[in-house]
Design a protein around this nucleic acid. Structure first.
Length: 306
DNA sequence: GAGCCGTGGTA
DNA sequence: TTACCAAGGCT
């Protein structure tokens, strides 16, 4: 059932997209190769891992400054592991999904305690770390260690759907067929495979974009199944829009912002100001405590976890 | 496996 | 302004 284009077409895609990437890749600091790594005190696999977690559902432009700050604060897993989890949550700032900061801290502790402080160059061991799923394990494997893993994020899924299967958008969730396709497209050569992963992701991010793809600038437009099919509009069900206003996520965000900005523990009365609905407010505060993002103290005071 | 989990930029 | 979108993971 898997689309598997002829080997000649695959090789032509490799040439086209790798050449384009070599000429057009953005200069992102976590992409600097080990031979040129300019920060000897910063552990490069750790730098890659942190970048990948920060980039989960968050745009590059917002990640880059926070990544630099994290590398200054915590250049190795051991540095972060020695900090309080609440420090990670505070320094996460407004990147969003703050549980990622908590899991990054937990991953640092696991790397220190279970891996001797060295990030494992093994996909299964990477994925066993908190906050590291299939995508991030493959990305760290490829970009930090050169492992020939298929890195399949939404950019890759969209680009490969258009290039190979001719669909305007991938399905809402990752399918086994997409994973198989990504693996089939992976160059055999290990370094080329790592570069290919980055190249397809980059193409999806800056050219083969979701809303308004820049097909006129696409190096592979002559090889694109979607264009050959006449660039048909998406026909399947559209992803349900996420609501925001009035949701628990909005309330949790407001509560956590107070605690991030406070130098010390705050009384419940300070948290009461951020949302009028007491029932929802208390439920959200309780869920933040349950998640480990907030630590309750005696006398109705709260802080980021120490 | 559907739903939940933040935040800000863009059209 | 509303809606979509952004290098997912977890339950």
């Amino acid at each position: 059932m898997t689309h598997r284009p002829p080997i000649g077409e695959v090789e032509a895609l490799h040439d086209t997209i790798l050449d384009w990437y070599d000429a057009n890749a953005r200069d992102l600091p976590w992409r600097i190769p080990a031979a040129d790594w300019p920060w000897p005190q910063v552990d490069r696999p750790w730098a890659v891992l942190v970048s990948e977690v920060m980039l989960q559902q968050t745009p590059v432009a917002r990640v880059e400054p926070m990544w630099h700050r994290w590398m200054q604060l915590w250049p190795t897993p051991a540095h972060l592991a020695a900090a309080a989890p609440g420090d990670a949550v505070r320094e996460w700032g407004r990147l969003g999904y703050p549980r990622r900061a908590l899991r990054l801290h937990a991953a640092a502790v696991a790397i220190r305690d279970e891996h001797g402080g060295v990030i494992p160059a093994d996909l299964q061991q990477l994925q066993a770390l908190p906050g590291i799923g299939g995508y991030t394990a493959a990305a760290v494997g490829a970009f930090a260690f050169g492992i020939r893993s298929a890195v399949v994020d939404v950019n890759v899924r969209r680009a490969e759907a258009r290039l190979v299967t001719g669909a305007a958008y991938p399905a809402p969730s990752l399918s086994a067929a997409e994973t198989a396709l990504a693996r089939a497209l992976l160059p055999l050569d290990e370094p080329a495979a790592a570069r290919w992963n980055a190249a397809v992701m980059e193409l999806g991010a800056v050219v083969c974009k979701a809303a308004r793809p820049l097909c006129a600038r696409c190096p592979a437009h002559a090889q694109c199944a979607w264009i050959r099919a006449g660039s048909p509009a998406h026909d399947g069900p559209r992803r349900a829009a996420q609501r925001w206003h009035g949701t628990d996520r909005q309330v949790r965000g407001k509560l956590l912002q107070v605690l991030r900005d406070a130098p010390a523990a705050v009384p419940r009365s300070a948290l009461d100001l951020v949302w009028p609905d007491a029932g929802q407010r208390d439920r959200c505060l309780a869920s933040l405590v349950e998640d480990g993002l907030v630590e309750p103290l005696p006398r109705e005071r709260f802080r980021l976890p120490g």
